[in-house]
Design a protein around this nucleic acid. Structure first.
Lengths: 165, 165
DNA sequence: TCAAGATTGATGCAGGTGCATCGAGTGGAG
DNA sequence: CTCCACTCGATGCACCTGCATCAATCTTGA
């Protein structure tokens, strides 16, 4: 029940923690320096923009983004405050609501993708061959689906407006 | 200057973000459920306990842990408040100080390692063969040393009281 | 020797996050 | 229908973080 991890596993753990925090940091810095809001905003805007009519229930967004409920709630507050999204009431379930992306929201999302994709290329793409990127993805996936029970989207496809962290 | 990342790279980026946050979350949860403080405390205590006489300058700690100065300062505050470390003045440089781990600190560090190592095994070790763990480490290392310019410790060695995230 | 600049560590402030809890609304069992 | 359990989303609180800045001290170099 309390087997010790091998030094190899421990080492992988340490690197996973350190490397992602460094890389994330770098990417967030680049975005910030370009005058953009945090990555989480991008993720939310992307999810909304991909949704059928540009709108989602907060609960959906929450599940997509893997963040807690209150976090979603407040993120939406901020998007709405900035005019990037708007809340619409939900007729069929009066507890709920819809969050709809605005034109400004769509536009920001696209502009952010420019800086974001450049950062990904700079800090990840340029460091790894495609084949190695695939290997890395594969190894990471083995760790992913287990502590909780989520499935990651199998692979990313679109060409111009992609990720969602 | 603004080449787009390949979908492979983007996919690796997404997984790196998602998987590490899931796994870290799981580990932190396990520690918390076992009644322990956050991982950052462990990291600090470990660094201190490894230092020559159980004491370090805050600046050293900061560099080891890769966290900002103010963050170190406040982390030390908390450790001191809990009696896990104490501040000693530094004779030779009166701006500075030394932080020394206490017996309680050493003891907590050891007890935490029990739960921590079990979590690493549960969420990482058991998911990956040692060979795969090594591959993963290797791939991650390629991303690591670049955005800033830090070197990660080459590989972890000790057997009973290891990581430092 | 002395002023300018760098380094060390602390802190006020604004904002973000986790936790617990709340009120509104839904839906199912009896 | 009525109640009870549940889901949805918001929010008060405590704490944590990043940023900017501070005072104290050390170092440099003219």
């Amino acid at each position: 029940m309390k087997r010790k991890p091998s030094t190899e596993a421990t080492s992988a753990w340490i690197r996973l923690m350190r490397v992602q925090s460094r890389v994330l940091d770098c990417v967030e810095q680049d975005l910030k320096k370009a005058g953009f809001p945090p990555l989480a905003w991008y993720d939310a805007l992307l999810e909304l923009s991909r949704a059928p009519s540009g709108e989602l229930r907060p609960v959906e967004l929450e599940r997509q983004m893997l963040i807690p409920q209150y976090s979603t709630s407040r993120l939406i507050d901020r998007l709405v405050d900035e005019g990037l999204a708007s809340r619409r009431e939900c007729k069929i379930d009066k507890r709920g609501q819809f969050v709809e992306i605005t034109e400004a929201g769509r536009e920001l999302q696209k502009r952010m993708w420019g800086a974001y994709s450049a950062a990904i290329e700079k800090y990840v793409g340029s460091k790894l061959s495609d084949a190695d990127a695939v290997k890395l993805s594969g190894l990471l996936d083995r760790l992913g689906c287990s502590c909780g029970e989520m499935k990651l989207p199998p692979v990313v496809h679109s060409n111009e407006t992609t990720p969602s962290r």
